[in-house]
Write a protein that binds this DNA or RNA. Sequence first.
DNA 1: TAAATAAAGGATATTTAGATCCTTTTATCT
DNA 2: AGATAAAAGGATCTAAATATCCTTTATTTA
Lengths: 145, 145
Amino acid sequence: MFSKSCEYGLRATIFIAEQSSSNQVVGLKTIAKAINSPEAFTAKILQVLTKNNIISSIKGPHGGFRIEESRMKEIKLIQIITILDGNKIFYGCGLGLDQCDENFPCPLHNQFVKVKEELRMMFETNTLQDILFTENVKNMFWLKR
Amino acid sequence: MFSKSCEYGLRATIFIAEQSSSNQVVGLKTIAKAINSPEAFTAKILQVLTKNNIISSIKGPHGGFRIEESRMKEIKLIQIITILDGNKIFYGCGLGLDQCDENFPCPLHNQFVKVKEELRMMFETNTLQDILFTENVKNMFWLKR
DNA sequence: TAAATAAAGGATATTTAGATCCTTTTATCT
DNA sequence: AGATAAAAGGATCTAAATATCCTTTATTTA
């Protein structure tokens, strides 16, 4: 469904959000361990997310990554997905046709539109805030299982 | 959403089905042209589909590929997808977690389950027969646009 | 039976995603 | 100021997906 980059990016962002909600700045090593991802590769993804103003980074000793409290309710998961994977998953033809739309639909067009729209709404409506409020955020991380 | 292999495989199968419904055997070249896919790569995919008894192949002059009339209503799209891409898309965790289920869900588990199940049902319920009966099958192919 | 045709199969090439390594920059602390 | 810590950035490397090429096998037709 999503690329590895996008999976790691989502997991990392949620983890950073979770830590930021208790004012913790977290470093790369900690993040990679928590979300079970390769460190150097995760670094690249965090760079992209930083440039796109999803997370912010702090260099030097005691540096790391964080998310402003005020951004939590602004950042929607769909932004992260779009940055890392584009929007083909939400708008592309499921059968891979270049030209497939209302006027010239593939046989599955209408069904695809329905489920893809539902998928899009799912990520459009969920903010980081929402995720943090769920019962099972901490399930995701390699902490105290 | 799907791999190229799977996209080509679905398009090719639908095309062969469409041709078979008027008793036409179609060769690789024709298929690749019709569905706008690389010929040799498509050949590999058709081999897999043949081995998996989705389509049947005929060697030698006037050979090609076809689908038995009786198979049309038996073959569900989900079979083709499962053969070519596995079932991760229907059952895997959207965030890429190894352990994510009812008992140990990620924050998006329930929402993912819902949309993934809908996606699965979409391909579970659509047979080749169903696709051939749709208004816009022919939209898919590079024939008389 | 020989020539031609088309899929099967094997080997190889190319591209992209995924991952790692090393150097540079920025900041902090002593 | 010098040492240290951590992210940024550049260069590579690896594996998997995608794609091509060539030979073999099966079948048909002349």
